[in-house]
Lab assay of single mutants.
Amino acid sequence: SSEEQMCGTHRETKKIFCEVDRSLLCLLCSSSQEHRYHRHRPIEWAA
């Protein structure tokens, strides 16, 4: 659903897949302290 594609923290669309956590992130989350050094892919890659 579209609600699942929205970041609850930043209200941004989740467009990035974190390979380490195997989760979807928004651009702001992907550059956060928690995920900054993880490997990321565009969401299309994970589909």
Score class of each variant (00 low, 15 high):
residue 1 S to I: 07
residue 1 S to G: 04
residue 1 S to P: 06
residue 1 S to E: 13
residue 2 S to K: 10
residue 2 S to Q: 06
residue 2 S to R: 08
residue 2 S to Y: 03
residue 2 S to N: 04
residue 2 S to W: 02
residue 2 S to G: 10
residue 2 S to D: 07
residue 3 E to N: 07
residue 3 E to T: 05
residue 3 E to W: 10
residue 4 E to Q: 02
residue 4 E to A: 09
residue 4 E to F: 03
residue 4 E to K: 04
residue 4 E to V: 11
residue 4 E to I: 10
residue 5 Q to Y: 13
residue 5 Q to F: 06
residue 5 Q to G: 08
residue 6 M to W: 03
residue 6 M to D: 01
residue 6 M to T: 06
residue 6 M to K: 04
residue 6 M to R: 07
residue 7 C to F: 00
residue 8 G to V: 12
residue 8 G to N: 10
residue 8 G to F: 15
residue 8 G to L: 12
residue 9 T to E: 12
residue 9 T to V: 13
residue 9 T to S: 10
residue 9 T to D: 06
residue 10 H to I: 00
residue 11 R to T: 10
residue 11 R to M: 05
residue 11 R to E: 02
residue 12 E to C: 12
residue 12 E to F: 12
residue 12 E to L: 13
residue 12 E to I: 07
residue 12 E to D: 13
residue 12 E to N: 01
residue 12 E to W: 05
residue 13 T to C: 09
residue 13 T to M: 15
residue 13 T to G: 09
residue 13 T to K: 09
residue 14 K to Q: 07
residue 14 K to E: 09
residue 15 K to M: 04
residue 15 K to V: 06
residue 15 K to Q: 08
residue 15 K to C: 06
residue 15 K to P: 01
residue 15 K to F: 07
residue 15 K to A: 07
residue 15 K to W: 02
residue 16 I to N: 02
residue 16 I to Y: 11
residue 16 I to A: 02
residue 16 I to W: 08
residue 16 I to R: 05
residue 17 F to G: 03
residue 17 F to S: 02
residue 17 F to L: 11
residue 17 F to M: 11
residue 17 F to I: 05
residue 17 F to C: 01
residue 18 C to R: 02
residue 18 C to Q: 02
residue 18 C to S: 07
residue 18 C to T: 05
residue 18 C to F: 01
residue 18 C to L: 00
residue 19 E to N: 05
residue 19 E to D: 07
residue 19 E to H: 00
residue 19 E to F: 00
residue 19 E to A: 05
residue 20 V to A: 14
residue 20 V to I: 10
residue 20 V to N: 12
residue 20 V to P: 07
residue 20 V to M: 12
residue 21 D to G: 06
residue 21 D to A: 08
residue 21 D to C: 14
residue 21 D to V: 04
residue 21 D to P: 00
residue 21 D to T: 13
residue 22 R to P: 12
residue 22 R to K: 15
residue 22 R to M: 08
residue 23 S to K: 12
residue 23 S to Q: 10
residue 23 S to I: 12
residue 23 S to L: 10
residue 23 S to V: 10
residue 23 S to F: 00
residue 24 L to R: 09
residue 24 L to E: 11
residue 24 L to S: 07
residue 24 L to P: 09
residue 24 L to M: 14
residue 25 L to D: 02
residue 25 L to R: 05
residue 25 L to K: 03
residue 25 L to Y: 12
residue 25 L to M: 04
residue 25 L to N: 04
residue 25 L to V: 14
residue 26 C to K: 00
residue 26 C to F: 00
residue 27 L to Q: 14
residue 27 L to C: 15
residue 27 L to R: 14
residue 28 L to S: 14
residue 28 L to I: 15
residue 28 L to K: 13
residue 28 L to C: 06
residue 28 L to N: 13
residue 29 C to N: 01
residue 29 C to Y: 00
residue 29 C to D: 04
residue 30 S to K: 02
residue 30 S to F: 01
residue 30 S to P: 03
residue 30 S to Y: 06
residue 30 S to H: 04
residue 30 S to Q: 02
residue 30 S to C: 05
residue 30 S to W: 03
residue 30 S to V: 08
residue 31 S to G: 12
residue 31 S to L: 05
residue 31 S to H: 05
residue 31 S to C: 09
residue 31 S to D: 08
residue 31 S to E: 10
residue 31 S to V: 10
residue 31 S to R: 12
residue 32 S to Y: 09
residue 32 S to T: 08
residue 32 S to A: 09
residue 32 S to F: 05
residue 32 S to E: 06
residue 32 S to M: 10
residue 33 Q to N: 11
residue 33 Q to P: 15
residue 33 Q to D: 08
residue 34 E to L: 03
residue 34 E to H: 12
residue 34 E to D: 13
residue 34 E to I: 01
residue 34 E to W: 00
residue 35 H to Q: 00
residue 35 H to Y: 00
residue 35 H to M: 00
residue 35 H to F: 02
residue 36 R to W: 03
residue 36 R to E: 07
residue 36 R to I: 09
residue 36 R to M: 07
residue 36 R to Q: 09
residue 36 R to P: 04
residue 37 Y to E: 14
residue 37 Y to Q: 14
residue 37 Y to F: 11
residue 37 Y to S: 14
residue 37 Y to P: 08
residue 38 H to M: 02
residue 38 H to W: 02
residue 38 H to S: 02
residue 38 H to D: 04
residue 38 H to Y: 02
residue 38 H to F: 08
residue 38 H to K: 03
residue 39 R to E: 15
residue 39 R to D: 15
residue 39 R to L: 10
residue 39 R to T: 13
residue 39 R to M: 10
residue 39 R to Y: 07
residue 39 R to C: 06
residue 40 H to A: 01
residue 40 H to R: 04
residue 40 H to W: 03
residue 41 R to H: 05
residue 41 R to L: 07
residue 41 R to E: 09
residue 42 P to F: 08
residue 42 P to G: 12
residue 42 P to T: 11
residue 43 I to R: 06
residue 43 I to W: 06
residue 43 I to C: 09
residue 43 I to Y: 15
residue 43 I to P: 04
residue 44 E to T: 09
residue 44 E to G: 09
residue 44 E to Y: 03
residue 44 E to P: 05
residue 45 W to A: 15
residue 45 W to S: 15
residue 45 W to Q: 15
residue 46 A to E: 11
residue 46 A to Y: 09
residue 46 A to M: 12
residue 46 A to N: 10
residue 46 A to K: 06
residue 46 A to R: 08
residue 46 A to V: 09
residue 47 A to M: 12
residue 47 A to V: 14
residue 47 A to G: 11
